[in-house]
Structure formats: C-alpha cells, structure tokens
Design a protein around this nucleic acid. Structure first.
Lengths: 169, 169
DNA sequence: AATCATTGCGCAATAT
DNA sequence: AATATTGCGCAATGAT
C-alpha cells in the first residue's frame, strides 16, 4: 500500500524553479538561537525582524558559517550518510520480515513431518501390540486361535495411538 | 543573499517551488523563537528568479502563509501524526523481530520432537525385524509350530515404513 | 474539502 | 575528523 514513486530523489524533477531549501535559516519563520552550533553570519537579509546580536565576529571552532564551503560539504556528507543508514534500516526490516516467512514455512514443514512420523509410529505400535496378543493367544491356545479375525488386524488398535511423545511443554 | 541554494555536488535536491523552509529545531537547550514576520516576507523571498513577476500577494494553495494559525495548526497536527506513525513503525519492527525469535524457538522444539519420534520409530522397527527373524527361525525349526501361525500377520507386514526420515524437500 | 497516515528528506545532536 | 544513528520538523502524497 502506498507506493509512491518517489517523485524526488533519483528522478528528473525540477519543475523549473528555484530550489531553495534552506532550513534553519532566519528568513521567515522561527529563528533559532545559536548557541552550540555554528550559526552566525546570516543576519543579512531580513535583518529587521531579527535581533541578531553580534555579527561578524569570532566563531572559533565552529569552522562553519552556514554558508561556508566547509559547512555545506559536511552537510552533504551527512545527508548521504543518513540516506545510507536509512536504506540499511529499511533493508534490515524487510529481511526480518522475510525471515519470518521462511521460518513459518519451515515450521509447517516440520509439523508435517511430525505428523507423518507420529502416524508411522502409531501404526507400528499397533502392529506390535497385535502381534503380542497373538502370541499370548497362541500360548494359551496353541492349536488354532480365533480363526474369524485372523485376517483382521488390530481389534485393539486404539489403546495407544497418541502418546507418541510423552513430552509435555 | 541567495540561500545555500542547491547543494551542488551530487546532491539530491528536489523540486522546490519557492519553498523556503525555515525549520527550526529546538534541541534541548535551544529554544525556538516564535517569530512574527511579515506574512508575505517569506513567500517569495527567494531569489527573484521565479517565473513571472514574483509578487508578494495572496497565494491560495499554500493555504497559509507560514504564520497563519491555520498553518501552524496543521503543522502541529501533522507532526503529531508523524510521530505516531513512526512510533508504530518502530513497534512493528520490534514485533517482527520478536516473532522471529519465537518462531526460532518453536522451530527448535519441533526439531527436537522429530528427533525423538525418529528414535522411537527406529527402536520399534528394530524390534520388529528381530522378531521377524525369530519367526523365520521357528519356521525352519518348528518345535511345535503347526497351524498356530495362521492368524499371525506380523512377519511380512513391515513392508515399507522405514524411510522415516527420508523425506526430501 | 478536510483530515490523518506515510514517506522521503535535510538538519543537528549524538554515538561510534 | 569522519561516518553512523536518531529524533524532529517540513512537505508531498496516499488514503479516508
């Protein structure tokens, strides 16, 4: 659902206008109070409303002036990193989802196998019990036991049939 | 006084129809200064390179000139929605991860069960084979065999049923 | 037309 | 110093 074709990013956008996107600037909306970050030299334009204190001064470390090459370069690198990071994140999420599907499938497979094995086991057990009974009968009546049911296996095949695994959980 | 304009080198810009986005951030410590600037000031404040004459008039579409109550209100609502959406997204991711763990566990459980069943089956089969041999021996050296065997289907019943774990896939 | 939900994106603070 | 993550707000777009 919602699979926008990302009009941006790798697309021939540009409606043909100016692409101005200077966030964090003074121009129109809110002005942030520069304190920890490089942000000083920009009170040029709409100065009127801003009470930009000292301009043109000393920003030592913050070797960046918002417009500085340094700054722009850093921003760009970061944007790239962010993009990359997010891409990974998404990929990871998808992988995880995939994993779920695979595990679900395998689980079904395993359950099927268990079912099969259980059935086999059940059959064998029945056979086993039946035979045991026959032997017992023979012991008691060595000559010729019940003939009527001779071919009919397992009159008592209901006794076990389910305790295939005694484990509980 | 042009804005940083578009990042020049390999920058993913997007279409920006005179969108001066003065986002303000208020990191813990910094505070945003809600500011009142002439309504129109921002609208076309961008480089005058826009299409036709850039008049600072009333633009209907942007339904609000950045300061409008309407605007702020909408923004706030959206910010809220975004936050909510992202929260959900994260939660979902965590749930999925959780699911993976659960499935993995169940998987192990199932495999253990299979192992157990296989073993049981194996034992029973051995028992059967052994018995079958005994019977065969009896046939060759009938001590008191006689027709007593008529009802005993055992020996040849274990036809297949031994590929317990031979299933492929 | 309005509203909420999603998504891509850039910024800046942090973490590594 | 550099990249990686993360929270946040904006705006476009999808879905109601």
């Amino acid at each position: 659902m919602s699979r926008p074709a990302q009009p941006k990013t790798t697309t021939p956008d540009h409606i043909g206008v100016s692409v101005i996107q200077s966030q964090t600037h003074a121009p129109g909306g809110l002005q942030r109070v520069p304190q920890l970050l490089p942000a000083n030299a920009n009170a040029n334009a709409s100065a009127g409303a801003l009470a930009g204190g000292g301009k043109a001064a000393k920003m030592k470390k913050p070797s960046a002036d918002k417009e500085s090459d340094e700054y722009r370069q850093r921003r760009e690198r970061n944007n790239l990193a962010v993009k990359k990071s997010r891409m990974r994140s998404k990929q990871k999420a998808m992988d995880t989802q995939q994993r779920v599907n695979e595990l679900k499938e395998e689980n079904e497979r395993l359950e099927a196998k268990i079912k099969l094995l259980s059935k086999e086991l059940s059959v064998l057990k029945d056979l086993f019990l039946e035979h045991a009974h026959n032997l017992a009968d023979n012991v008691h009546a060595p000559a010729a036991a019940g003939g009527g049911e001779g071919a009919s296996p397992a009159p008592n095949n209901n006794n076990n049939s389910n305790n295939s695994s005694a484990n509980g959980q």
